[in-house]
Design a binder for these strands. Sequence first.
RNA 1: GGUCCGGUGGCCGAGUGGUCAGGCAAGGGUCUGCAAAACCCUCUACGGCGGUUCAAUUCCGCCCCGGACCUCCA
Length: 495
Amino acid sequence: MKLRFHNSLTRRVEDFTPLDPGHVRLYVCGPTVYDLAHLGNARPVVVFDVLARLLRRIYPRITYVRNITDVDDKINARARETGEPIAAITSRTTADFHRDMAALGCLPPDVEPTATGHIREMIALIERLIARGHAYAAEGHVLFRVASFPDYGKLSGRSPDELLAGARVEVAAYKESPGDFVLWKPSDADTPGWDSPWGRGRPGWHIECSAMSWRHLGESFDIHGGGHDLLFPHHENEVAQSRAAFGTPFMAHTWLHNGMLLVDGEKMSKSLGNFLTVRDILARGPWAGEAFRLLLLRTHYRAALDFSFDALEECKAELDGHYAMLKRAPEPPDRDSPVIRQLVDWVLAPLADDLNTPLALARLRDLRTLENALTVGGSAAVVLSRIGLGAEPPPGAAATAFRKAAEVLGIGQGDAKGWLQGAGRMHEASGHATGTGRATAAVAATNTSIEAAIAARLAARAAKNWAEADRIRDDLKAQGVILEDGPSGTSWRRA
RNA sequence: GGUCCGGUGGCCGAGUGGUCAGGCAAGGGUCUGCAAAACCCUCUACGGCGGUUCAAUUCCGCCCCGGACCUCCA
């Protein structure tokens, strides 16, 4: 499987060739831990989780590094506002982040370095930059000398002149040039600081990623990912720091940037205050994490994505349909047959083309249609021709392929019956106003009371007492429980 | 103002120089005691104006609209 990616550095889609075919190295900018993750923060985590899963499938070894930024002026500000100790804020927020991302089906990265754990590497890097003439100390600060690095602006497609013209902040007097950015800054007694050759201080924002990627991936590596809003200045500055320090032709070979998540057409961001947290989504019910993951993946990662709760509900309904198919599909005669492998490859092929998750998801739906046609009845001809299969696979084969392919996307891996009958839903949903009525409905009916009602309805049906049978079904429906009569009896699921 | 990315049917969303995306919604049908589910059918779009071409939604130019970035940001 040959991968292609849109490389921000060249602004083109390129074939991906690992620097070391035996070991692919990936770095993604992680969160600054001062507050709960919002929906926009979740997008790169999910997108690059899929990328990491895909890479793992193809290459013998990958190292996925995603940092935790636990020293930052926003954290300091939060501590001053609330009085909570900094260490408490960062450790709690990190734990919250881990739980939220796990709820979205994201696997942990291979290495999750913290900025505070890499102060020594940052200082070493800064000393190296000073020694090479790429940085200078002034009034307790150390600044990167942008003029010393001719390629500055190459990643973000800007010329240094434009950047100066566009600078809209006050220029500090100690800067040689307005575009120079901080590598190290002094800390007062009330601010976290570390001893350094330039006095007690703390790192600037960009240096940590250069230090941590260097430590864990080397001077140059394969892929660097992050939100598109990090392209400038964060990634531009990372490149300048790393390349100037090591004299390398590139920092990361391929730069991937995900598009922004919007709400009402505007970027969701903490500074705008228009954000929903991942917690807000998860509070909708145990289905919400996976539904939100699907929502993120059904838009191509580089495009803007306008979030809405209607779209979230639509994703929930889609997953209901997937799990319903998985629930009724039989075991195939051979779980690793050539046709199953062919179906899996067919679904995943679009991912090789710049991570085209929407097309892969469409093909997953085709697998569902195919399985339904073979197990429930219907014509598989249209889907078979789309896939390029000459003969019908045995029942269960498409469902098995569905599970295997969906694993790379991180969806459809749950227990089908558990999903449909909402195991754990009451507990998860209680205490939250969901606005959908689902939580209340779930509280009203327990699994045993549902089974009892179904038995009563079955008796009524046997006696051809349709009025009573329908009354029971309507009663359950009012409680959010939907009955489905089939050849093998009556099954139920929660709406 | 500068740089960049987009505009696809009621909605979401792939893709392509000429034959199908797909989903949701809607309408019709098969099945069913009635439903639900599943399956079948219907709904044929590519912002505007030029250009290239036998042929443009797809390539080129201009314009309009939306979004991102321009030293807080995923």
